[in-house]
Amino acid sequence: MNAFRLAGDITHLISILVLLLKIYATKSCSGISLKTQELYAVVFLARYLDLFTDFISVYNSVMKVVFILSSVAIVWCMRRHRAVKRSYDKELDTFRHYYLVGACFVFALLVHEKFTFQEVFWAFSIYLEAVAIIPQLVLLQRSGNVDNLTGQYVFFLGAYRALYILNWIYRYFTEAKFSRWIACISGLVQTALYADFFYYYFLSWKNNAKLNLPA
């Protein structure tokens, strides 16, 4: 465990908790893509299948449970909570995310470290996490609505990406046999898509700021 990865895990968790709190506190999820949140929940469920089989550390196990619970809580809030689900942009959040799930699963069947149930699902979760932000990116391009995408959420999500890349660079130079090409390459694609999201987020935020200028 190195400081970059610990900080990356923590900023990742904070980004999820910030979003959950924002939705729960304002009882609104307008501008949030339910599809992206569903993909994130699937990512954690598919990746942490080893929760009960491989014990790595208390930290590792606790964080896996917290990631699963918090990501499922966001999906539950957006689908079940009466007040929240009324504010869901159902007619705008229309990206066919099932195609992303299917494509990532097929790709995981082709490219993985070992052809075992857990390894294929692990690779699937890595690929899916990389593309999971696409429905949110499309929704943001359509709606320009950043009401619930707080700056903190975007900041912590970006910090998570940057710190994980630093973690891989650090591990590459300090560990003899560090070979996580699947996670590294997929992580770079994920970061590039995040950068695209950030670009549209910044534009929307600037436009909203202009719109809200005192008349």
């Binding site: 896996k64 990631f67 560090f178 996670a183």
Partner: peptide, 10 residues
């Protein structure tokens, strides 16, 4: 298995 090969990253 040693930690590296295990999936020790979240």
């Amino acid at each position: 298995a040693n930690a590296d090969s295990q999936k020790d990253e979240l």
